[in-house]
Design a protein around this nucleic acid. Structure first.
Lengths: 210, 210
DNA sequence: TAGATTGTTAATCGATTAACAATC
DNA sequence: TAGATTGTTAATCGATTAACAATC
């Protein structure tokens, strides 16, 4: 089990986890692929196929034991431990993502993503704090990533600066990067990069306008 | 031509447009599918296949006339006119997206997305402005969307409020929606909805951590 | 037992890649 | 003309859906 898993399956696993997190699973509540699919917005067959890629978690005729499945999903997604992230570029978007994650991390108890470091190149921002997390100069990227054991770097700098800070993060040994700058970035094979791009999203929905 | 086009193709078209926008196309510069693919991060065959879905734009042996192709892409993506967007929810994320788009709109000349209206439910924010755009109460959603001719609504409210404001926007006749709240939203068939979700993005990259 | 639902195999669908005749 | 590159068809790859025997 756990062959090479398509990204789209990983995303759906995260959706299933979100669905289960929103359900009352007390009293050995069982959940069928039909119900899970309904709430996640996919077909029951899709749910079973996805889960089957990681193992056999269900009971024929009954469904999936809610609490157990949730625990499995957390394990599979590595969300059973704290995932340490840093934000590079503390503009409005960086602040938004920082506050969003720290708020969920402190209030939700099950939310795994913790912002442990912030970086910016603006001297005026260095040393100030957001929700208690100090903003450091980009020059300290490498040492801080190592010292804080950062797992994921989130890039929210302007497009022109993105490749540069990415290279620094990669050099510091980062293995997973989420990029919000609207540019195509290059990473070595062993580094996971996912880019989210507001203007591509806008184009995508705008295409279908009359 | 212009059959039903997969979303993934629309997104690549937007990437091709971005690539062409970054190139000097003077002196009847021709661009081959190889070069375009190289810069966009896809194969030459993919480029030709994508473009062929919309018509015949190239010359065998020569490539695509840069300026003409760029104009075609803008037409196809409806980026040859101003696309009017509103932001619902002026928290940090909403402000970030507002400033980002208005800045590009005013400085880039070719950037089509213009923020024409802002909405929030916080009375303290109503009447204040961001980059000159006034923040209105959500109760004015419907009339403002109609009056301003808004094409796309961007939702940046908390998850709990998202479906509610979406319903109002749909009622006001909006046809395209970009959602940043981490919930699954329901829309009628004729409304285009795309959701971007930071925590799903984080799960996706975190999955691959050792 | 009868009814429900899983896990898995087979069938279908859709998207990507390869190949090449047409043509600039 | 020779070389390059398109548009398109065919081959491949991968993901989704359907079907059903196994089983709780």
């Amino acid at each position: 089990m756990e062959q090479r898993i398509p990204n789209v399956v990983v995303r759906r696993m995260a959706i299933y986890l979100r669905v289960l997190t929103g359900l009352d699973l007390e009293n050995d509540r069982y959940v069928s692929s039909h119900e899970l699919g309904e709430r996640a917005g996919v077909t029951p067959a899709q749910v079973r196929k996805d889960l089957a890629m990681f193992g056999q978690f269900g009971k024929p005729g009954v469904g999936y034991h809610g609490k157990s499945l949730k625990a499995e999903l957390k394990r599979i997604l590595k969300a059973d431990r704290v995932i340490r992230i840093c934000i590079i570029g503390v503009g409005e978007l960086g602040r938004a993502i920082t506050r969003y994650n720290l708020k969920r991390f402190t209030t939700e108890k099950e939310y795994p993503f913790k912002v442990v470091a912030l970086f910016d190149s603006d001297p005026a921002k260095i040393g100030t704090r957001i929700e208690g997390v100090e903003i450091r100069p980009v020059s300290e990227l490498s040492q801080t990533i190592k010292a804080e054991g950062v797992d994921v770097a989130v890039i929210t700098v302007p497009a022109e600066a993105a490749q540069e800070v990415l290279d620094l993060a990669v050099e510091a040994g980062i293995k997973a990067v989420l990029n919000y700058a609207p540019v195509r970035l290059k990473v070595p094979e062993h580094v996971r990069l996912h880019s989210a791009d507001v203007s591509l999203d806008l184009h995508q929905v705008a295409y279908h306008l009359e």
